[in-house]
């Protein structure tokens, strides 16, 4: 099994390789020995509390910070030493959006086009339309959402191969958030490699192939979303009309993880291959409703974190 995986990795082209990256700000702040890679065409999510080290990692990839240890390679180029060469591949939306001292969004985009040697603005116009952005507005008077949109346009319009987004959806209203996610999906379909950091699990769940949890400057866990979705086990919540059914069901040999007798509800954890059996059994009962409780990213990471805590406590006890 492990060999198989290794082979698989070897076949995949790595666009970004982060190796033992360390940036120590002292007092336990910073990032420590971060290692991961971004495959071509993959969307990688970063999740973590504020100050966990998401932005620091992204800044290192952008070559804005000099690593204290380890390295970041983008297409084999060092992100610090060959910073300007790596930028050919990257579109970036910074965490804090502040624009240069220019009049309007249009002027700003034109200026960026000059920096990037891009003359074709059709893609820019497409994105602008999709995000319903008025780029002629005064840059200084733009709302946070408008600024975010403008920054997105800037990051995407030169059609970069790698897209790095630091908290891209903060300040967007829910509708725009949907539009934005669609945009990302489209980029993904076009074969772009994307790194996206957020503190919102749902968002990442929707677009990412893999999500990394960063806590206290370390990658605690990287989960493949396919793994998450294709688990062998599923949870079902079942409510019965009468107490008798509820009690009878409990007598069956299902793994019940939660009982709520006041509502006649049970939550069952079941291997997926046994689901048909469950349904067969249920025909004998008067079932009010049955629903699958989805295993979310949030749930997964909460588990991971609580596991970590118990481990730590055990360590402390020892």
């Amino acid at each position: 099994m492990k060999e198989k995986l290794d082979n698989k990795i070897n076949q995949i082209e790595e666009v970004i390789e982060v190796n033992n990256l360390t940036k120590d700000y002292g007092e336990g702040r910073g990032i420590f020995n971060i290692t991961f890679s971004l495959h071509k065409g993959e969307t990688l999510g970063f999740v973590g509390a504020n100050g966990a080290g998401k932005t620091t990692t992204l800044r290192n990839i952008m070559g804005f910070l000099k690593p204290d240890g380890g390295s970041v390679k983008i297409h084999g180029l060092d992100s610090w030493e060959d910073s300007e060469k790596t930028k050919k591949y990257i579109g970036y939306v910074p965490g804090e959006i502040a624009f240069p001292d220019l009049k309007s969004g249009t002027v700003f985009l034109k200026s960026q086009a000059e920096f990037l040697n891009v003359t074709d603005m059709t893609k820019a116009n497409e994105i602008i339309e999709k995000l319903q952005l008025d780029p002629t507005a005064n840059l200084k008077r733009m709302s946070k959402g408008m600024k975010q949109k403008t920054a997105l346009v800037e990051a995407l319009f030169s059609d970069p191969e790698i897209i790095i987004l630091d908290e891209p959806t903060t300040g967007l209203d829910p509708l725009m958030r949907v539009a934005f996610l669609e945009l990302i999906k489209k980029e993904k379909e076009a074969g772009k490699s994307i790194i996206i950091s957020s503190h919102l699990y749902e968002e990442l769940e929707k677009v990412c192939d893999r999500v990394a949890l960063i806590d206290c400057g370390k990658i605690v866990n990287i989960i493949d979303m396919n793994e998450l979705h294709n688990r062998d086990w599923a949870d079902f919540k079942i409510e019965f009309y009468d107490k008798k059914d509820y009690k009878d069901f409990n007598k069956l040999r299902y793994k019940i993880i939660r009982k709520q007798p006041e509502y006649n509800q049970v939550t069952v954890n079941i291997e997926k291959k046994n689901i048909p059996n469950l349904f067969k059994d249920l025909t004998m009962f008067n079932v009010k409703f049955i629903s699958e409780i989805k295993f979310t990213l949030e749930k997964h990471f909460n588990e991971v974190i609580s596991n970590l805590k118990t481990k730590k406590e055990e360590k402390n006890d020892k």
Partner: peptide
């Protein structure tokens, strides 16, 4: 302010 990011995220 962070606006330098737009310059440095280009091959400059």
């Amino acid at each position: 302010s962070g606006s330098m990011a737009y310059v440095l995220s280009t091959p400059t």
